Amino acid sequence: MPKQVAVLVAANVLNNRIAPRLGPLTSAAATALLVAMARRSGASWEDLGFHRGRRGAAVGGALAAGVVVAYTAGVALPATRRFFRDDRALGLTRARALEEALLQVPVGTVLLEEVGFRGVVYGTLARTRGAATATAVSSALFGLWHILPAIDMAEANPALGRLASGEGIEETIEEIVEEIRHPEEAPPPRPWKKHLDTARVVVGSVVATGVAGVVYCELRRRNGLLAPSLFHTATNSLGYAFARLAANLPDNDSQPRG
């Protein structure tokens, strides 16, 4: 297991800090290496979650449709629309956004995370320690895996940092709108507060993705790897489309961005 974790850590650093655009290549190579290591240790394809394809497709497809409904509702409501406006997505050209949604997310992110955490880590531990231990360890590692992305997310979406600092949704939106309408009255920047908000976003992200990992593990246990993979892909890839949609809709007191 330490060797598998080392492969995941190396891929995480490469994808998030050293060569993000090469994420699909890095993730594909890391995935192949992890599968080879697991197979060499005696794991079967079923142990790794490569089974129940039809059932996984049906369940994963239904969950992906649910993501569309949830995102549509979130963007439609002014109170939650702000949290879809991620500068990482809005700063991309249309071609780059398509690359992220159709290549970087499915191959650079979901492939490695699902096969790595729900396939190899879960499958290896489930064989010797049982499903409960496999779920706990896999989900904890999955949460920690998101530390670097969470730091980037906090910088790209300040609204999340404000929400994580304990401010309610209404207060957060009101403060942001006031800063836009009266920038001269905005309080001076406080670096320490930014760092504190970032830390809160990171902790919240680790906890949230750890909990998501438990859900993904249960989906994998019942339906194979395809179900959580489709759900995971929809959750991440559709974010790019809905970020652009949210950017072109008005807030309570503001105009569309155009």
Rank of each mutant, 00 (worst) to 15 (best):
M1L: 13
K3H: 12
Q4K: 11
V7M: 10
V7L: 12
P20V: 05
G23A: 12
A36I: 12
A36Y: 14
A36L: 11
A36T: 13
R40K: 15
S41A: 15
S44V: 09
D47K: 14
V59G: 10
A62E: 10
G66V: 07
V67E: 04
V69E: 05
G74T: 01
A76Y: 12
T80K: 00
D86G: 02
L92F: 10
L98D: 09
E100F: 13
L103R: 08
V110N: 03
L111R: 11
E113V: 01
E114C: 01
E114G: 02
F117H: 02
S139Q: 04
A140V: 13
L141P: 06
W145R: 00
L148Q: 07
L148D: 02
P149G: 05
A150W: 06
L160C: 01
G161L: 11
S165V: 06
I169S: 01
T172I: 00
T172H: 00
E179R: 15
P189T: 13
P191L: 07
K194W: 14
A199M: 13
G204N: 06
G204M: 04
V206F: 02
V206E: 03
V207A: 01
A208H: 02
V214F: 06
Y216T: 03
E218Y: 11
R222K: 15
L226R: 11
L226F: 09
A234P: 07
A234D: 03
R244Y: 14
L249K: 12
P250L: 09
P250H: 05
P256R: 15
G258V: 14
